[in-house]
């Protein structure tokens, strides 16, 4: 047995010889087992290359997943945010343009209609009234001029 007595640091006084012997044997067995395992591992070729390869593989797998998760987490809400606000804007603009155009058309039509109606010839039956109106307007205008002159 390779175990040395000085290795067990100061066993307590109440420790029996049997207990110390068992511990020494257990430590010896443990040493033998570790030597055996290490010899077996040392006989295997270095597996160091496997570690970076696995790490790279893991990163290659992890990187796209994290990128996709990041993109989903950031760009989707951003897209949704801008899409939500951006879509109505052209619609509003378009609708306001349409409304402006429509109102412009309506106004033009209305003005044309008014012009045409105003410029319509007074029916013959109403001509005397039209003349009276003209005269009244003229008289009023003249009387107003007179008032101004007198003043």
């Amino acid at each position: 047995m390779k175990f040395r007595k000085d290795a067990v640091a100061n066993p307590e006084p109440d420790a029996t010889r049997e207990e110390v012997r068992e511990m020494a044997e257990a430590l010896s067995l443990y040493r033998s087992a570790m030597h055996h395992i290490a010899e077996r591992e040392a006989a295997r070729p270095f597996a160091v290359e496997q570690r970076p390869a696995r790490a790279i593989g893991f990163r290659l797998l992890l990187a796209p997943v994290l990128t996709a998760a990041f993109a989903a987490g950031v760009f989707v809400p951003l897209y949704g945010h801008f899409h939500h606000h951006a879509v109505p804007a052209p619609h509003t603009l378009a609708s306001s343009n349409t409304a402006d155009t429509g109102s412009a058309v309506d106004d033009t039509a209305l003005m044309n209609q008014i012009d045409s109606e105003v410029s319509e010839d007074v029916p013959d039956a109403l001509r005397p009234l039209a003349d009276l109106n003209d005269q009244a307007t003229t008289t009023t205008a003249v009387s107003e001029k007179d008032d101004v002159t007198q003043e």
């Binding site: 570790m34 290490a38 010899e39 591992e41 040392a42 270095f46 597996a47 496997q50 570690r51």
Partner: peptide
């Protein structure tokens, strides 16, 4: 000395990959 260093690291770390990597 490789077996000895590997044995020490394997006993201390109980991790084959780490022990081999650190031995190298």
């Amino acid at each position: 000395y490789r077996p000895r260093i590997l044995r020490f690291l394997l006993s201390s770390l109980t991790d084959r990959d780490a022990a081999e990597s650190l031995t190298q």
